[in-house]
Amino acid sequence: MVAILETKNLGITFGTHQAVQDVSFSVEKNEFKSIIGPNGAGKTTLFNLLSGQLKPTKGEIYLKGQQITGSSVVERTRLGIGRSFQITNVFPNLTVLENVRLAVQSQAKLRYQAFTHYRSYQKFEEKALHWLHVALLDHKENTLAINLAHGEKRKLEMAMLLALEPELLLLDEPTAGMSLEDVPAILQVIKKIKEEGDKTILLIEHKMDMIMDLSDRIMVLFNGKLLAEGTPREIMDNELVQSAYLGGLYDEFTSQS
């Protein structure tokens, strides 16, 4: 198997705080890998490093063997890394269709065409509608994104992500803040993507049952360090993980009270 993504001793420091330290891992092609860890373990920071929002202070990142440590967000997107955000991040004042259409347009590398009417690219619209269908958002195309319910916004985000047709998907808590009724729908979307089998997926999630069910492998982050890695079974049985995770949760409770 080929490693599509690989990091070597990846780390970032904010002031004196080491948010991520010495994380080395690799993701194989078409693998579904989840990252778990208590709040503040550095999961989202790790994602930010991978997608280019943050620059690491240490270590290297390779995509398909190519060094991308210094590449910008735009370059990485074009290379095939797509990410969803933990906080919903769409174009609020554009229609749902336009949101996805922009992603399709980017994927088609049509970036500086200024003279033809955008409607003359019918294909884009058809494709965008297709992705909306995949993300279970039929019949919503003319709604402004700002008027969507939270769960629908997350679905829209998935549709935009898919429309970029990335090889590597970084999903940052796709079900965060969602009502319980909405979760199965998103799960269904993720499952659909997984079943198609041509995407590599990296997922951050808190809902353990969901992770155990979907993942090929799981990584556990704790205090910015990679604590363990293995199949769901192995992780379940790992005592270190259990204590860290429970300990982490305990910390969280004390800090809140």
């Binding site: 991040n89 769409v90 174009f91 609020p92 004042n93 922009l102 992603a103 980017s106």
Partner: peptide, 11 residues
């Protein structure tokens, strides 16, 4: 509408 998002779409 959303500069950051446009960037992460590859623009």
């Amino acid at each position: 509408d959303n500069e950051q998002r446009a960037e992460s779409l590859g623009y």
